[in-house]
């Protein structure tokens, strides 16, 4: 698994160098590879599609602008998510919408619990999982998304979030526990 990660990293760095030299293909390779992961992360963190698109643009523009600061010892993926993380923090710092989102999510969950679904279609499962993720504490949600959606290793998550690795692991365990609790309420069991 580690060898696979290393090859992947080398491919990314090659594409990144091409991009810096002005080769369009270098950028489109990286963009196509990571845009959905970064966008998915941003949309689940902000809860707003339009804001997530703005932050996605800012993330890629900032990546190009700060290319000199790219540490070749790290993976491009982790570095890119580090930028996306900072953009998200800036967003929450300037617009204090977090509590509103939490309130919205609480209302949504409240109404959901009142009327349990009889049939769980794929679409329902998607919605339930997304709601369960949206319900998480922001720090747990970020670790969970970085790991499960973006595929960032815990060591890198700790660097991105500026915390000890054990803190990142603890947040992940809590995130899983809370998601499972929420899914169980709606009749979805892990196994």
């Amino acid at each position: 698994m580690q060898e696979l990660m290393q090859n992947n990293n080398e491919d990314d760095q090659g594409a990144f160098d091409l991009w810096l030299k002005g080769d369009t293909k270098g950028f489109s390779t990286l963009y196509e590879k990571y845009k959905n992961r970064v966008f998915g992360f941003l949309i689940r963190m902000t809860g707003n599609r339009e804001i997530a698109e703005d932050l996605l643009q800012e993330t890629f523009f900032a990546a190009l602008r700060n290319a000199d600061q790219f540490d070749r010892g790290r993976s491009f993926l982790s570095w890119l998510f580090g930028i996306a993380h900072k953009r998200t923090i800036d967003y929450f710092r300037h617009v204090k919408v977090e509590s509103e989102h939490k309130e919205d999510a609480e209302n949504a969950v409240g109404s959901r619990i009142d009327r349990p679904d009889k049939e769980l279609s794929n679409k329902n499962i998607q919605a339930i999982v997304r709601d369960a993720v949206a319900e998480l504490d922001p720090l747990q949600r970020e670790v969970f998304l970085l790991r499960e959606m973006a595929g960032v290793p815990f060591k890198e998550i700790a660097v991105i979030m500026n915390c000890p690795i054990n803190t990142a692991l603890g947040r992940m365990r809590l995130a899983l526990k809370n998601i499972r609790k929420e899914l169980k309420k709606r009749g979805i069991d892990g196994v």
């Binding site: 959905n36 966008f39 999982v129 997304r130 998304l145 499960e148 979805i188 892990g190």
Partner: peptide, 15 residues
């Protein structure tokens, strides 16, 4: 969970 619930199709989105 990782295979069926925490997939990119569920958690991700497209710009």
């Amino acid at each position: 969970e990782r295979e069926h619930l925490f997939s990119i199709d569920i958690l991700g989105d497209t710009p």
